[in-house]
């Protein structure tokens, strides 16, 4: 039975529609378990004392594991390292990429298409393979286990976000608005600062958030290039899972997820509003 505009407004309660609603309901329940289940299961663990299988809740509750994490020096350093690299990565990436994003959106220059495709190449090559190839160069340049080496790895992971998403945002600024401002006597810089930039800002914010998180979550490259001299929060997770009680890793996970969730919630309107999807359709 086809869903028509009429049947959407007033649907008779038939067996068909009941079965259909039940199937949709079942699918939603499965999706809730699939998506949220692991996160809740992990979250509960951070406050759990003993937990007997197969009970669905722990036997007793404790905040002891939070104290373990707060008092552990290595974990503290990992937090510091992460909070050092992520903002620095966003800043460096913005300086390198934003002018290029503007150029891609506004200028027609030789090699434009070739440039766009080479940017895509960083994403087309699987990360672990890239890091393995990068390591040979890093050995030769003495960049292994250095701040600069890790920074390079982190910035590489943000180039696509910082170029494509702002480029789509700059391109979406109506040119006649800029021209109207020019006609009213505003200088080029003035037009950029008070017309183009504010209108493209949501796209730039999404790019910055995605870049921050890309750096904050980057584990494989940092591990290969930086471990054990520089451990960030995600690379610390690798050893945490092996060497600490699961509850400690659960607490650490919650701490690691806080910045991501906070930033995503702050920018979710723009991300869901299509800024992200728009950026990935380069032409």
């Amino acid at each position: 039975m086809a869903i028509t505009a009429a049947s959407r407004t007033r649907r008779p309660l038939t067996l068909d529609s009941i079965v259909r609603s039940a199937l949709v309901g079942l699918f939603v329940v499965l999706m809730v378990v699939f998506i949220l289940g692991p996160l809740l299961w992990l979250g509960v663990r951070a406050f759990a004392g003993n937990w007997t299988f197969p009970n669905l809740l722990p036997d007793d509750w404790t905040l002891r594991w939070w104290q373990v994490v707060v008092n552990d020096g290595a974990l503290g350093i990992a937090v510091q390292n992460s909070l050092f690299f992520a903002p620095l990565t966003v800043l460096v990436s913005a300086i390198i990429c934003l002018p290029a994003a503007y150029a891609f959106a506004r200028f027609d220059f030789p090699g434009r298409r070739f440039f766009l495709i080479s940017l895509f190449a960083t994403n087309a090559f699987p990360k672990m393979g890239l890091f393995v190839t990068l390591a040979a160069l890093f050995y030769a340049l003495n960049l292994m286990n250095t701040v600069l080496g890790i920074l390079v790895v982190h910035v590489l992971g943000t180039v696509v976000f910082m170029t494509w998403i702002p480029a789509a945002a700059f391109a979406a600024v109506p040119r006649n608005l800029e021209e109207a401002a020019r006609d009213a006597g505003a200088s080029k810089l003035r037009v950029f600062a008070s017309v183009t930039l504010p209108m493209a800002l949501p796209g730039i914010i999404v790019a910055a958030v995605m870049s921050f998180l890309a750096s904050f979550d980057e584990a494989q490259g940092t591990y290969l290039v930086g471990a054990p001299a520089f451990m960030t929060m995600p690379t610390q997770m690798y050893s945490l899972v092996l060497n600490y009680p699961t509850q400690v890793a659960a607490v650490f996970s919650i701490l690691l997820a806080i910045p991501s969730v906070a930033l995503m919630l702050a920018a979710h309107k723009h991300i869901l509003g299509g800024q992200l999807a728009e950026g990935f359709q380069i032409k």
């Binding site: 390198i96 002018p99 220059f109 030789p110 940017l119 190449a121 960083t122 910035v155 180039v159």
Partner: peptide, 12 residues
């Protein structure tokens, strides 16, 4: 335009 777009390309 070409020179503005160059830095990320060089990095890559």
């Amino acid at each position: 335009g070409f020179f503005m777009a160059l830095p990320p390309i060089l990095l890559i």
